[in-house]
Design a protein around this nucleic acid. Structure first.
Lengths: 201, 201
DNA sequence: ATTAATTTATGACTATAAGTCATTGACTTT
DNA sequence: AAAGTCAATGACTTATAGTCATAAATTAAT
């Protein structure tokens, strides 16, 4: 046999690609590690070189679409908070839609996995979203867009809860309704209602 | 040994009680079926007489506190929708708080478990909440409190997403903030913002 | 060019816990 | 008192997550 033909990064990519396809199609519980490695064309043990637990691959799988949102937000320096948030919501729900129910389901379940608590090395999903959004709010406070007494932590939680709730709900309704319709019609309205009292005019 | 001392119902109750205590204390992943049966003083196989899967006991465990809310709502016939909803939110978050993080975590994870899809026999959690809330909204429409063109399904989804999002968020923040504070300060405001356009005056 | 060190891959193996089922004892009915 | 039912048991099967000693391929050092 010829071993070490491919670089480590390439193998990891193969695993993530295979994992994404299987997860989308069958859901997390219905596939096992061997299914993933077989599809990726490697041995079972190889999986555990790249991921500590079966669950850990989901983070990588979802990092592709959701990671892009974060990058986009970094580039929106010039915009105000009232422009940034609707964009963020819209993009988030676009990702939810394109990832599909199985991926989103497992993504949210992983967030709630106690072994993935936000303070552990592997529980960065939640913390990442949280810190990024918090940063945006803090930025708005320091720029004077929001009042100084804005409860930034709590508002960040509220915004995220909005996203997670929406995603959960969409998964449970088996994709019956349009997530983007929801965001555009209601989320912005809700966010408006909350922010109104903290916006300086 | 003397078997059949206790009725089936009594054994089930013992399992649920033991399960609740262990779940609260250690979390779902950290306990196994034998832990539960040992604490309940029965054999492992007995568990599977009452529950098809390990996960199924969580539904029973949470039915105790959350079930009461539904009963309360039934009794509030006289109230308007704008009185019912804040009450529901408040009570829901009271339950969340009293159940604790571990129970709520697993509860939400179970809701997202594909084996517990809303249309399966065991996936009634979600459907139950959903139908009850929907009923309240439909009631409000038929009474003329809400306009005839109110998108009842979508609004029901939004309300539930609010609750689930809040609960998820609270679990993730390790109980740092007061869920009741959140509900009273923000949720009602959000719901108001959405309902405003559908309320007939 | 040869040896040593490092990286990556392997798959048989172990460990754990979920879930099954044939058996049995206690109680009930006829 | 025999037949039937209910509830409980725990040894057993099964499934799969995760480990690890071994080895091949590659790179670096002498």
């Amino acid at each position: 046999m010829n071993k070490r033909q491919t670089s480590a990064q390439e193998t990891r990519r193969k695993l993530v690609t295979a994992g994404l396809e299987l997860l989308k199609e069958k859901g997390f519980d219905a596939i096992n590690v061997e299914d993933i490695t077989k599809k990726a064309g490697v041995a079972k043990g190889t999986f555990y070189i790249y991921f500590k637990r079966k669950e850990d691959i989901v983070l990588d799988i979802s990092r592709v679409p959701f990671g892009e949102i974060a990058e986009e937000l970094q580039k929106m320096e010039g915009l105000t908070i009232t422009e940034k948030l609707p964009h963020y919501f819209h993009r988030f729900m676009e990702c939810v839609e394109s990832c599909g129910i199985n991926v989103c389901r497992q993504w949210t379940r992983d967030v709630l996995d106690p072994n993935n608590a936000p303070n552990t090395k592997d529980g960065q999903k939640w913390k990442y979203d949280f810190e990024m959004l918090k940063g945006i709010l803090e930025d708005a406070v320091s720029k004077g867009e929001l009042k100084k007494d804005t409860p930034v932590e709590l508002l960040t939680h509220i915004i995220i809860s909005e996203l997670y709730g929406m995603m959960t709900c969409w998964c449970m309704s088996d994709g019956k309704f349009e997530p983007l319709d929801w965001t555009d019609r209601f989320c912005n309205m809700q966010i408006d209602a909350i922010f109104k009292q903290y916006i300086r005019r």
